[in-house]
Design a protein around this nucleic acid. Sequence first.
DNA 1: ATTTGAACTGTAAACGATTACAGTTCAAGC
DNA 2: GCTTGAACTGTAATCGTTTACAGTTCAAAT
Lengths: 331, 331
Amino acid sequence: MANIEAVAKQAGVSVASVSRVINGAAARADTEARVRKAIAELDYQPNSAARALKVRQSEQICLSFDDLANPAYIAMTRGVGRELSATKYRLILSSAFSSVEEIVKHLQTMGRGFADGLIISPIYSDERITKLISALHMPVVLVGTQPEGLDVDNVYVDSSAGIAMAVEHLIQTGRTKIGLINGPLSTKPGVRRKAAFEKAIKAAGLKFDKASVIQANTFSPEAGYFAFSEIADFSKFDAFICANDQLAAGAMKFASENGISIPGDIAIVGIDNTDMASLLHPTLTSVDLKAEERGEIAAQLMLDRLANPDRAPKRITVEPKLVIRESTAKK
Amino acid sequence: MANIEAVAKQAGVSVASVSRVINGAAARADTEARVRKAIAELDYQPNSAARALKVRQSEQICLSFDDLANPAYIAMTRGVGRELSATKYRLILSSAFSSVEEIVKHLQTMGRGFADGLIISPIYSDERITKLISALHMPVVLVGTQPEGLDVDNVYVDSSAGIAMAVEHLIQTGRTKIGLINGPLSTKPGVRRKAAFEKAIKAAGLKFDKASVIQANTFSPEAGYFAFSEIADFSKFDAFICANDQLAAGAMKFASENGISIPGDIAIVGIDNTDMASLLHPTLTSVDLKAEERGEIAAQLMLDRLANPDRAPKRITVEPKLVIRESTAKK
DNA sequence: ATTTGAACTGTAAACGATTACAGTTCAAGC
DNA sequence: GCTTGAACTGTAATCGTTTACAGTTCAAAT
């Protein structure tokens, strides 16, 4: 494969001139023409490793999250990808972590300068992760709740506000016996949603009952199905908020198989407003946490930070939005 | 940031020794200990660009496909990612192409050696792409139908056989007036599914009517919904095969909104057997094209090829499987 | 024709690793 | 203590770029 020296020789100029033509610096018209011709003749492509070594930039941005099966993260990836596609930066994906160990290991290999920046949306909270992130010699944008002692660019969505909206909406449509199908408490969203739910219930003037929170052990449809199947007495409830749409979909499946009418007997609201929400039957009321938009914003923050390394960390807050559909129609 | 020379100085050895310790070559126990100590003290991480330049390997594999919104590709990504996660290779994602132009442009920048291999699953067929792939100085694994004149590693699923299974199943459950909601004819799957459908209908002894093929203009739920909404006379049909699950989901939504009973009036079978198939109402019979498995196999082929650059191209065929659910229950 | 300064070009030194090759150390066997 | 060969270590060249700096060209102004 031809290198820059071969091109220079072919064009009868110096390597410096070739480099300048490639990188758009000024050159005499005929110099440029000869270089371009030589490049075409030799089918030359600059070596990106050599360039990265010299200019100390990889032109790659790494996106890291925990669960490639979760549509919310896919949406986020789409947002990041779209924002990056018009730039020189490439998107590297690191995902499918099953444990905190793997995340830590991954973050450790991050230090090798193969990426210019890291956009990370961790759902597990662990001190080691916090420590490693702050030791990273690289710009970091954190999507999600910022842990204690970390001060990096951050895009945040107030999911508590979203849950409050959901509770309010359920009350307005005549429900008072509201439950929560929550995700695992080992995750940050799990912890936060539970707290937000309790707060919202109390704020609405209802009394909070611990038994109204049902823990699923993953954020999957299967877990939602199982959670519903474990409920002994559905008469205690007239509505459920589910910690994400997938749990909601699973729960609705159990309901339809077991003659529980939605929204007649039980209203359901999901979280994330993923594509499936409008395809389920009945269509699913869901709190849109704007994953795609958060991805876009994260990418913008990263690009901004890369252009401007010394500015103070920013935090951008995204407002959730309740999208009302059939699954919470008035009784 | 410390480099290998700083480590060497700190440890009182040569850079060569440091490099050898890092890369696992033999060293005296006390040399190794001192190097490791220095590495820890300086928080040293080898520079991957320098390494890539010298050893002529980027340790990155690029996965490229057209539509990040399509769950089938997400599943494929999961397969590739899982297979790669135990290796030294990182996964780069290139996606969200909207046009052939973008794909071509992308493939052109591919030549720069930032990846050691390319796994590509193109849905648009275009001569330029074929040409560029064969001009690529890099191992390529193609997921999908291999175009004329390309001879690279290939993982292939016989979707025609899958469609034949679907037709057969529909006939067995008492349907004879079968339609196809097809994807765009500008894509390879669109073209192939149409041909496969016609062939399967004839093979089953039914007579093929051109009007039974309805063209959607994307592979999305919206397009499926719209396709169904354009059907003037549903009495001409008692079943539809949809070119993917998303089209099927959209069609089913239209049906449920318009009092068309599934499977009572119309049976539906999807293609891809994505996660949503079992969550829809009724649950969706679907032809599993094994996207995740194809991703795994593609990654294996790539790793094998990287370890063994001179072997002849292989083609691996995956068998589709019909997963029967409620949407095609007997009348 | 000469001056002048802008515009361009070439030389050579980096960037940070790997590795061939030659030189050194070291334990074992005498 | 000496020889021997294996095991280890260090020197220095190399990978393919970019870019500071010095040198050259060239058109316009005198």
